[in-house]
Design a protein around this nucleic acid. Sequence first.
DNA 1: AAAAAATTTAACCGGATGGTTAAATCTAAT
DNA 2: ATTAGATTTAACCATCCGGTTAAATTTTTT
Lengths: 209, 209
Amino acid sequence: METKKDSTEDKILEAAKNVFVTKGMDGARMQEIADEAGINKALLHYYFRSKERLFEATFGEIIKYAFPKITQIVQTDGPIVTKIEQIIDAYIDLLIKHPFIPGFVMKELNRDPSGLFKIVVKFGLNPKAIFDHIQLAMDRGEIIKMKPQHLAINILSMCIFPFAARPILSFVVFKDDPKALEAFYAERAEIIKKFVIDAIVIRENHIDT
Amino acid sequence: METKKDSTEDKILEAAKNVFVTKGMDGARMQEIADEAGINKALLHYYFRSKERLFEATFGEIIKYAFPKITQIVQTDGPIVTKIEQIIDAYIDLLIKHPFIPGFVMKELNRDPSGLFKIVVKFGLNPKAIFDHIQLAMDRGEIIKMKPQHLAINILSMCIFPFAARPILSFVVFKDDPKALEAFYAERAEIIKKFVIDAIVIRENHIDT
DNA sequence: AAAAAATTTAACCGGATGGTTAAATCTAAT
DNA sequence: ATTAGATTTAACCATCCGGTTAAATTTTTT
């Protein structure tokens, strides 16, 4: 199941990713990572001196997929509805490819939120720019008015949560029917897009607050 | 900050709740729980023989708040829109009182999904009944049509996710302004209700699929 | 071929941690 | 007052685990 270069470092990072994502930082064992990488513990420390460093390297690899470049999409011109659709498409696409990211990121950021600062600067996250953009579209009358944060979180919630709560969905909603679960995920993009648009486009009988 | 009977067992459960919720099963330390309960480790094992048992007891206590009686609300008669509003109100109310439940539950169910089975039977969770109920309302033309699972998950997502992702919201969106974050949470119920209703009520210019 | 780097083996250290134990002390019920 | 249960103290054990080390072996580079 290897993907890129088969170098030992990559094998380690790949193995670490698997173990850390399923077990978390606390639950992960260096020995298990070594086993999964097909090497021994000594070599593991030979490459990454400590569990801490290995985790940080792995976390960095994973977090890349967590915050896609929505800023890029937002910066283009065109109706905001189109941009929202693009963002939803991009996000769901990403999450279907990396379904375990949300759970992992939320778990670890809850454990130790200190890493958030690095992430924000590293990815140049600028939520304010996005919120301003949304606000502008609202002022222009493109969509109904609400605090931009609420709209953004509403969209992100519907995209991310179903993946973060995958075990619950899997067992409680789709009683151990993996096919049905995958089909559900595949439908999400279209569903969310329609849902959001129906909620925010302005119509005659809209009670605008 | 004690609430109910000040019995030792309650003190332990209260302390265990705090520690387990913040540190998780793996990260929690028996010594820390004993300290937090104001007792010693020996007495801790005197009441709950092992960490495993203590965790299970605590988890049971916590999980009670995770799946509120939406079934009750659903079973009443009246328009489904009203019921949806009641459910959102109930859920947000609950989450504001217990903001750390979502993160904890998702973390632990991800770590060991085996506990889900017990929960489902214990609480008599019957999602199918809910889905059927939604489907019926759709067939009656009360709201637009979509797979009931999507509607339910959309609503739950917008309710739960902002709490599960609290650290991200706190730092990235409301840069260390706790007041703003609390205000945001307080607004959620109204926002979600309006959002959902605007998305699902039938209007003339609705493109019904 | 020689040198350097990568990898293995296997043992070990030390600290943290879950759990136990035995004796002593305190508290509440009989 | 006696007794049983609750609680403390303090030491202890076994295990797990992150990390180290030294030597041997293999692979790669020069």
